[in-house]
Amino acid sequence: MPGEASSNVKLQCRAVWKLFGAGAAAALATAGGKLSGEALAEAGLIGAVRDANLEVRDGEIFVIMGLSGSGKSTLVRCMSRLVEPTSGEIFFNGENLLSAPPARMIEIRRHQMGMVFQHFALLPHLSVLGNVAFPLEVQGVGRQAREDRARKMVELVGLEGREEFFPSELSGGQQQRVGIARSLSVEPEIWFLDEPFSALDPLIRREMQDEFIRLQNVLKKTIVFITHDFDEAIRLADRIAIMKDGMIVQVGTPEELVTAPADDYVAEFTQNVIKAKVIRVASLMKPMPKRAPTGGYLSDIGMTSAIADVAPLFQSANSVLRVVDDAGQPVGCLKREDVVQIMMQA
């Protein structure tokens, strides 16, 4: 849940660097493990990922967001070692991936990781069912078992009846559903999605986001989601990391980014965001007053609701809402004037 400092970290990146260009590793090592932008340019190297530190917690949707070329894809590929980091450490369930032998890496990717690609990466010669079953086929799972499992996944993403279609016979949105079903067929512990909806039309994109939220409510995976669309990030994220030129400039909940952007770059993204949609009741509520207001509380609201969602509940000028926690215990109250102020800012 946002804001909660949960200690069970699923995946951790420590001082991860990825430089492209000849002699990258040597250059980084001689510079003592750190290179500035100018030093990189001078050495003719591309700093795709520079000194990235982050933690992805169990069960959260962690969004990495940044403009094109900021290094998002490279970073997410470092996490599964599709791209070999130039230096740094990556821990997955406490195990250092960078020292895992190739066989172990194959094992981890086969059983614990799933990935969805921007351009779907479907195999053209396999049917929908064949594509979804492919990760299991690679593992050597028997035909019956893997097709049963694949059928379930196809159903889960709403493509039942199209099992025998081929990718070229599907629309973009449908193709990405296949990509999603495929990545889920091995029941991964961590799920990487590299701009999964960027290649889709805006309307379809919206629909797929809703679908994604529905899926996550069922599956409760640990997710690393890449996007260059800040609205998408805000809609989906528990926490967001903003990348710029290979560096992570800020990590925080959508609310934190909106209320306290670390620099102008982040502020640029957040300025057009409707604040009321992002800011949660918890950050605006006041302590419970000693005695109940005249007329009592209008109704009870949850701490994590967005301000925009509870605003319509205020009817008369002086009304107050009572805020309760998950267990239903009152923790504070929300006043109309505070809400109005936020609503006006949008």
């Binding site: 590929r77 799933g114 195999l123 492919f134 690679v138």
Partner: peptide, 15 residues
């Protein structure tokens, strides 16, 4: 062959 397809193969753990 697109790089993503390549990545897919490695991601699902192809030998």
């Amino acid at each position: 062959v697109p790089g993503e397809v390549h990545d897919l193969g490695r991601m699902v753990g192809c030998t």
